[in-house]
Amino acid sequence: SNGDLPPTMPMAELDHLAQIISKSHLETCQYLREELQQMSWQSFLQDEVDSYQNKPQEVMWQLCAVKITEAIQYVVEFAKRIDGFMDLCQNDQIVLLKAGSLEVVLLRMCRVFDSQNNTVFFDGKFAGPEVFKALGCDDLIMAVFDFAKSMCLLHLSEDELALFSAFILLSADRSWLQEKLQVEKLQQKTQLALQHVLQKNQREDGVLNKVLRVTALRSLCSRHTEKLCAFRAVYPDIVRTHFPPLYKELFSA
């Protein structure tokens, strides 16, 4: 509902906020679109696919944990550059990042996803879902690929994706927030800026679709946590000694 939104925000302020968030997104997006386009023909060859598929489960899990952690470091940097984020208390910064950083990684995945070939940029080349077979999480991988494909269909511009990512990161309904009201204000401002940009881009009819995707994002992230729990139950030492400390802080605590 828009009932709780501040009635108006000056157009110039909305533009300014959209510009800052868009700039922060571009500065921290890990790969530029042009770089990705140049690499788009580089898919894994069959023997490379075989080599990923033949890796022991724990080795593939570790590799994916490292890649996710790298992507999350860029999301943390994005968060730091969102107007007002660093003014929140540290507890809330941590709560928002713990709950939202993987969701933003998944949102950003549409930038590194090739819908035509159903491949995603991973470990230097474009990989299909079969590359991740050794993880033993086919259902989750399929769901992630389907999500990326559905995001790609929206053809979000960089500024729309930037604002949507910030909107997700600033979700005021996360558990354990201490200053919920302040987060709510930031999220509302971001939502207004997103609506403003969508209207400017003549795409206001897509807002609802995008907001609905929040449920899908949350479900993917909780499924990731479940899979990690199951993996950790079998390989507790691998997680403890070989997984990136940041990944453990975010998902394993």
Partner: peptide, 20 residues
């Protein structure tokens, strides 16, 4: 704080993967 040491460090750091 101890539980989220790395996150705290990343939030405090002025250097980032973006600058490296």
């Amino acid at each position: 704080k101890e539980k989220h040491k790395i996150l705290h460090q990343l939030l405090q750091n002025s250097t980032s993967p973006v600058d490296l």
